[in-house]
């Protein structure tokens, strides 16, 4: 992002992203998603809408599931953020990532990072959700490709694997 436009006050923001401390200088109006993508280069978090309705931008902030397009970067100062990039350990994928692969839970992949981050928040609260609960909790994540069937199957598969592992 262009540095310091004349006359616009910037604030230093320091966050811990996926365990690493990162900082940058932002205008108050910088949305968290733009800070992650443009300043920190974490482009796995997507932007799919202007209206806070699509969920492509979902991350967690201090453990709370968050649309990063609906939070200001300055609000996240001092917080711990987890993005899609933080889930895999090298090529060792998170069980939810594996499940989306196994069950064909994606086509173009645009919605997938947000979908996986929302699924993770859901499974942390409810490790054994019903199909209806999965659909209800993922209402804020829109997918224009899959028709959702395989996304639901992926989350069910991940839940089963994660219960088995736990």
């Amino acid at each position: 992002m262009a540095d310091a436009i004349a006359g616009v006050a910037r604030t230093q923001v320091t966050v811990t992203v996926n365990g690493q401390e990162r900082s940058g200088n932002v205008e108050p109006r910088t949305l968290l998603v733009h800070f992650l993508r443009d300043d920190l280069g974490l482009t796995g978090t997507h932007v799919g809408c202007d209206t806070s309705q699509c969920g492509a931008c979902v991350v967690t902030v201090d453990g709370v599931t968050t649309k990063s397009c609906t939070k200001l970067a300055v609000q996240a100062d001092g917080c711990s953020i987890e993005t899609i990039e933080g889930l895999a350990d090298g090529t060792n994928y998170h069980p939810i990532q594996d499940a989306f692969w196994e069950k064909h839970g994606l086509q173009c992949g645009y919605c997938t990072p947000g979908m996986i981050m929302s699924a993770k928040a859901l499974l942390e609260r409810n490790p054994d959700p019903s199909e209806a609960e999965i659909r209800h909790e993922l209402e804020g994540n829109l997918c224009r490709c899959t028709g959702y069937q395989n996304i639901v199957k992926s989350v069910q598969y991940a839940a089963e694997k994660m219960r088995g592992a736990g």
Partner: peptide, 26 residues
């Protein structure tokens, strides 16, 4: 006032609202 931001920030993104200052209560 900025509270949960889930009405105000979407309105500001669409420029339906353009307050000169936000006082964040979070």
């Amino acid at each position: 006032i900025l509270a949960g931001g889930h009405s105000l920030i979407p309105a500001m993104k669409l420029r339906l609202a353009a307050p000169a200052m936000l006082v964040d209560l979070t």
